[in-house]
Design a protein around this nucleic acid. Structure first.
Length: 234
DNA sequence: GCGACAG
DNA sequence: ATCTTGTCGC
């Protein structure tokens, strides 16, 4: 009773040159002048994540919708697909997005915010996974990454809520955010239609007792389970 | 040219 | 991301 792998979108980039060209073309469609939804009012926050089985050429994606106030799960959806692109730093979106879109399509609620694993603006060409997903869906998106990527940063203060900027020269393209005192920070950047201040505020609202936002924790667990099921009968 | 490098 | 045992701690 598991999913059949979805077909790849027609015309999906095959080479790195094609992929970077797509990023350069879509980058202009990112909306950065909207503050986005208020972190103080309840909304449906959706976490998306992907797991891989390169042996069987499978990708499983999950979208988990939470009430941002209670952190209760409101809805979940998964999708299985074929690996659409190799892992290349800076081109992660081409590997993850097709299956993530399929999972989002199956989600029976409309997201007020989508939380991605990885970066948005803080990307070599200013168009990371979170920006890309935002442009393709029109939804407000943010990126919360577990590891540093392109930009240098100072270590934020030791307490939950302490932050330090990810700087590209004088421009702040993201922020290292300490979600738990004494634990290494996460790296937040804007995706689409959300300000950096609000992206950081949402991150703290969604990450209360663990380092990572509950959205990404739930999505991570669900996509792994979906992958196990798909690999088992494939 | 040599590393570094989200997931 | 994924491969992987035990281990320290709440």
């Amino acid at each position: 009773m598991s999913d059949t792998p979805d077909e790849l979108p027609a015309g999906w980039p095959t080479t790195e040159a094609e992929a970077t060209a797509v990023q350069d073309e879509l980058r202009g469609r990112v909306v950065r002048d909207e503050p986005g939804p208020s972190p103080d009012a309840p909304l449906i926050a959706v976490g998306v994540d992907v797991a891989y089985d390169d042996e069987h050429d499978l990708v499983a994606a999950a979208a988990v919708a939470l009430d941002s106030d209670t952190l209760e799960v409101v809805a979940e959806a998964t999708a299985v697909g074929r690996v659409a692109f190799p892992y290349v730093p800076g081109l992660l979106a081409f590997r993850e997005i097709p299956t993530v879109l399929a999972a989002l399509d199956r989600l029976p609620v409309s997201p007020g915010l989508v939380v991605c694993d990885g970066y948005g603006l803080a990307h070599p060409r200013r168009f990371g996974l979170a920006s890309h997903l935002g442009v393709l869906t029109g939804l407000p998106t943010i990126g919360v990454a577990k590891n540093p990527f392109t930009f240098r940063h100072a270590d934020p203060g030791p307490l939950r809520g302490d932050t330090s900027p990810l700087l590209d020269g004088a421009e702040e393209v993201g922020r290292a955010v300490r979600t738990r005192s004494g634990v290494k920070p996460v790296f937040v950047s804007v995706g689409h239609r959300v300000s950096l201040d609000r992206a950081c505020a949402f991150t703290l609202r969604l990450a209360r007792e663990f380092r990572l936002p509950e959205t990404t924790r739930r999505a991570d667990a669900l996509c792994r389970a979906a992958l196990r099921a798909a690999s088992a009968d494939a």
